[in-house]
């Protein structure tokens, strides 16, 4: 297990460095004129251009720019975004919000997805099963932007159950509506997956064995079936966290959450290589860490993997 872990960590480091390089190269190749992008529709005067070009090393070759960036990354100095703010400050403010949003979305997806899926799986073909299937299809077929806007209009503006936009004074509660929107797709998929998995496991031989031991149905479902059914669900939902983080971009925009999505959007718009690469690198890092955790969790949940 330790050797496996070390191998995985080394792989992660390589992937990380490679990914930052590729992202940096991509940003470099699309950037036509970050300074003009920053200035928007207004012209930039030559002296300002000369100053900023030198400050951000914009006239130097790609590999040197990347070198400056990595040097900063390693020494913990992220440098300044083109917009002028310290990238470290931006990260420190934005990441916790996106992480909270993503984790709450994941939590909602896990709690409702699994409990709904178990319920549907236990009562296959029942009213709940049918309705949830129909809703799942709707959710899968609707862009998150539309869902977000509709939820905002209905639950926040019309019904007044939530605030339409980010309100830090509400604490964690401010993330609930956006997190529902963000987590809905994972919830729907997770619910179907759980339902199928539960239904399949209910028919398995070991369930028969368990009931021949005289166990209650409740215990059979909660212990024997659930534990087995969760294996694919955990794998799915675990890898979803990375996806949720990147999906947060749209949700954050709609609900005005000052998280990483807005910064990333701004960074891409302003062709801000260092900012975009820092954000994307952290996204990659989260993705790598969660997949490692999922793999470890998978091994914990399924002994056949552990000993295989």
């Amino acid at each position: 297990m330790t050797a496996y872990l070390i191998r995985r960590l080394l792989q992660m480091m390589l992937t990380f460095v490679g990914a930052t390089f590729i992202v940096y190269a991509l940003m470099f190749s699309i950037a036509s004129d970050p300074l003009q992008a920053l200035a928007g529709d207004k012209p930039l005067n030559p002296s300002q251009r000369a100053q900023l070009t030198a400050q951000y090393h914009l006239d130097e070759p790609f590999i040197k720019q990347y070198g400056y960036y990595m040097k900063g990354l390693v020494t913990g100095k992220f440098g300044r975004a083109i917009s002028g703010r310290q990238i470290a400050d931006v990260m420190a403010e934005a990441w916790p919000r996106t992480l909270q949003l993503g984790l709450i979305a994941l939590l909602i997806a896990i709690v409702l997805g699994i409990s709904g899926g178990v319920y549907a799986g236990l009562r296959r073909g029942g009213a709940f099963d049918q309705t949830s299937l129909a809703l799942t299809l709707v959710v899968i077929g609707t862009p998150i932007f539309v869902i977000g806007t509709v939820f905002q209009s209905v639950f926040a503006v019309e019904l007044g159950w939530f605030r339409p936009s980010y309100a830090p004074e509400l604490g964690i509660a401010t993330y609930i509506l956006p997190a529902i929107v963000l987590g809905l797709l994972s919830l729907a998929t997770g619910m179907r997956l759980t339902r199928t998995s539960v239904a399949e496991n209910l028919r398995s031989d070991y369930v028969r064995t368990a009931s021949s031991k005289g166990l209650t149905r409740r215990r059979i479902v909660a212990v024997h079936v659930l534990r087995n059914s969760l294996i694919p669900v955990v794998t799915f939902l675990g890898t979803e966290l990375g996806g949720l983080m990147s999906g947060a971009m749209v949700t954050e925009g709609i609900f005005n959450i000052p998280g990483i999505g807005g910064r990333l959007f701004q960074g891409i718009r302003l062709e801000d290589g260092p900012l975009v690469v820092t954000i994307v690198s952290l996204l990659i890092l989260i993705y790598l860490v969660t997949s490692l955790l999922v793999d470890l969790l998978y091994a914990v949940l399924d002994p056949r993997i552990r000993h295989g």
Binding site: Y206, H224, R227, N228
Partner: peptide, 10 residues
């Protein structure tokens, strides 16, 4: 079939 009749995860 004891392999399938036993719960694989316990």
């Amino acid at each position: 079939d004891a392999l399938s009749a036993l719960n694989p995860v316990f």
